[in-house]
Structure formats: structure tokens, C-alpha cells
Design a binder for these strands. Structure first.
Lengths: 225, 225
DNA sequence: TAGATTGTTAATCGATTAACAATC
DNA sequence: TAGATTGTTAATCGATTAACAATC
């Protein structure tokens, strides 16, 4: 046994690249996703390099934490310069294994559905809306963006044909649970819920409920104190 | 010095009630906000009591963590029964000091703005949209919900008259930064940004950028692995 | 009583941060 | 070179969890 072996510090958390077997911790995956959002926007604005301090200003994550998160996967930065935006985007996409395109089905052709369909907030991250559904027969057949609104009865065939991995619910509260049930039956494993309804789903399905008011309450607390 | 003093365990984190001087940690405030969202919806559905396990199912926060968070402020639950929904809602509102009404100004009378104005996702948590602005003169004067759309030039007087604490930006990317500047000038300290623009604001102003695509990336990672 | 669920302890684990040598 | 910023260490702090007595 060498002297080095005796004096080695405690092991740091094990991070492996996309080929390794280790899974990211929840916290690391969440933070990497946020870095990606800022980087994507910085790229749009023509920025070529970005420092950990700049990333920190936009994400409110401590700059040391950011350098630590990234250095676990490789030496992506240049000392005295920062990180190349383009290459950091592709590195993080590789780590998150979300470099490809993923197809979304959108439910609800009301104001919110139209806002989502016309936004590029999903498109920028490789998500493509490939179908829009509504159960109002007056809306079925109308055009929203590039898509013709379909009736929910077509759900099963569309999920299969188009390889849908995410269902986005932009519908009134009372419509949400029945649609969630349909999505589960069709085999969709990720549901993004813009209604306030508390959805009941099997454990293998992930529901993310959008909660702007909760975020506001949180911001307000720190404003008031 | 008594025997008790010698054997006391290390101090738990200090939580004080709304009258105490201590500030909640970021994590605790964020989690309490999420409990509140679920409780509010549970109340709507007519539920009278809820267990820490049920809260855990909906928030994905460990049930022990939930009991711990709550017990720091008082004994709100009944063993063998759970927590009374109504009383827990008011307790958490008291802790977060957000029991009152707070006024919002909404910017953008497009699809997203209309969706927000007609939703009760903010109203349920005590936020009231009191004014809608747009800089498109064709939209100014039209009716959105209960409000007549105003021109942005009226911003300063409205912020003062209506005691606006939050500005919500539901506008195209390129319109976001100028509006943020106007809000800062008018003295608003919390900005909720639905555009993708990275906003530059003074340190005393809080920006929260909505990022559904980031949340999806995160969910997708755990689906793919 | 029997079953359920809280409140709390104790142990562990991961996040956070300051500091600074390395180096662009 | 001088200034800036990364990569990394070491120390601390808060979050997380299992377990279980208390008690409804």
C-alpha cells in the first residue's frame, strides 16, 4: 500500500458520462437542465463564451457549484476565459442524453394551447409538437399553427405512429384526469399538467404540474422578509 | 449544569413562526409553497384531512421531510388521522406571510396573456390581476376578461395607484427587456418572465423565468435512464 | 383494542461555500 | 506579464431517511 493510498481524501460523488452506468442525482440533473436553458438563450444572443459567474447570475446557482457540476464530466472550460457556449450546450445535452428530438402531443386548443403551439420554448430544446387534440367538435378540424386539431379518439393511433413520449395538458381542470387516464392507457410515461387538477397515475408515469403561483408565493416570501 | 444540559442533542435548524425573527431557508420556503398548492386543490375537491404520505405522493417530497417541515412550526396534525386541510392551509399561509391579497400587472394581451387572465391559478393563491398592458394600439382599449387593455405608458401611475408588487411578462422575447426596465423604474421588485429572454435587472429585483422545457428535459432524463 | 399516522431522534448523505493554485 | 477564471480541495451546513414511540 502506497503513501498515496493512505492519504487519499474521501471519494467525491461519482459522476459518469453518457456511456457510464451511473445515474445523475436529482439535483445535478435539475441544475444541468437550467444551465442548458441559459446557454441556449445566450447562444441565440450571439454570445460565444460564458463564465461560471455569468451562469450563476442567471440561474442563482453558486458559481463554485456550477464549476463543480461541470468538472465532474470533463474539463470543459478555459481558465481566464470561461466556457464555450456551443460546446457546453452539446456536452450537457450528451450528459442528459437529450441530444435527440422528442415528440409531444398537446391537448387543448384554447388560448393556452395556442400559446404553447406557437412558442418555440419547447422547440429550442428538441421537443416538437406533432399533434394537437381537443374534444370540442367545433375546434376539431381547425388549424392551429401548422397542425389541424384532431379529436381525442385518435389518440392511440397517433401515440403509436408518431412515437409520442410526452403529453401536455392545456385543458380545463375537469378534463385533465380523463385525458391523463387515456395517455396512461396509450403508454405515454410523461405528463406535463398545466391544469390545477391533482392527477392520479400509476407509479411508472411522471406528472409535472406547472405552478406559476407557487413560484410567485416563494418569490414573495423573500420580498416580504 | 444539569445532566440534561450535558446530554442534549445538537440543535435542530431554528424555525420560528411568523412573529419570530428567523427567515425560512430557501428549501423550506419552496417546499411549503408546494404543500400549499396541493392543499388548495385538495380543498377544492372537498378533502377534509390529508396525510403526510398523500402530500408526499403529489409533491414527491419524502413524507418524513414533510412532517419535519411542519412540526418545526407547531403540532398541526392528529396521529392516526392526518392534517386538517383547511387549518393547514391557513397555518402555511401564516408561515409564508402570504395570507393577504397581492396585486399583479400583466403584460401582453396575446394568447398567453389571455390564458393567464382567465385562469384562476393565480387567484387561488391570493394574487389578483388588476391591470393588463399591451403596446399594440390595436389591442389597447379591447376587453380581456374583466379588464380593458391599457397602453404601457400608463404603467407608472397604475403601479402606484394599485400597489402592484409583481409584473408578469407574457410578451415576445424582444419586448421583455424594455418592459423589465420600465417595471424596475416603476419600483416593482418581482418579475415573472414567460419569455425566453435573459433579463438584466438590479440585484434587489427578483426575476423568475418560466421554463417548461427545462422541466421536461429533467423528466425525460429519468425516463430515458 | 387494533390500525394508522404523527412527531422526533439519530445517522448519513449530498449540497454549499470559501479559498486558492493552476493556467489561459 | 497581469488579470481573469477554471478546477479542486477541505470544511461546514442543511437535507434526507429509516425507525419507532406516542397517541389519535
Amino acid at each position: 500500500m502506497s503513501f498515496n493510498e493512505l492519504t487519499q481524501p474521501a471519494e467525491a460523488p461519482v459522476y459518469r458520462d453518457a456511456i457510464g452506468a451511473e445515474r445523475l442525482s436529482l439535483g445535478v440533473a435539475a441544475r444541468l437542465s437550467r444551465y442548458l436553458q441559459v446557454l441556449t438563450q445566450a447562444k441565440k444572443m450571439g454570445k460565444e463564451t460564458i463564465s461560471s459567474q455569468e451562469l450563476s447570475d442567471y440561474t442563482h446557482v453558486n458559481s463554485t457549484q456550477i464549476r463543480r457540476d461541470l468538472s465532474g464530466f470533463g474539463k470543459f472550460g478555459k481558465r481566464g476565459v470561461g466556457y464555450n457556449v456551443d460546446s457546453l450546450v452539446s456536452q450537457i445535452r450528451k450528459i442528459l442524453r437529450t441530444a435527440g428530438q422528442h415528440n409531444i402531443a398537446l391537448f387543448g386548443a384554447g388560448h393556452l394551447g395556442k400559446a404553447i403551439a406557437s412558442s418555440d420554448i419547447f422547440a429550442d430544446h428538441g421537443f416538437r409538437v406533432v399533434a394537437i387534440f381537443d374534444n370540442d367538435s367545433k375546434k376539431v378540424g381547425t388549424q392551429v399553427g401548422a397542425h389541424e386539431v384532431r379529436h381525442v379518439t385518435e389518440l392511440n393511433s397517433v401515440v403509436e405512429d408518431e412515437d409520442i413520449v410526452v403529453g401536455v395538458l392545456a385543458v380545463p381542470n375537469q378534463a385533465a384526469q380523463p385525458l391523463a387516464d387515456d395517455l396512461v392507457d396509450a403508454g405515454v410515461k410523461i405528463i406535463f399538467n398545466y391544469s390545477e387538477s391533482l392527477l392520479q397515475v400509476p407509479p411508472e408515469v411522471t406528472v409535472h404540474t406547472s405552478s406559476p403561483a407557487v413560484d410567485l408565493l416563494y418569490a414573495l416570501y423573500f420580498y416580504l422578509t
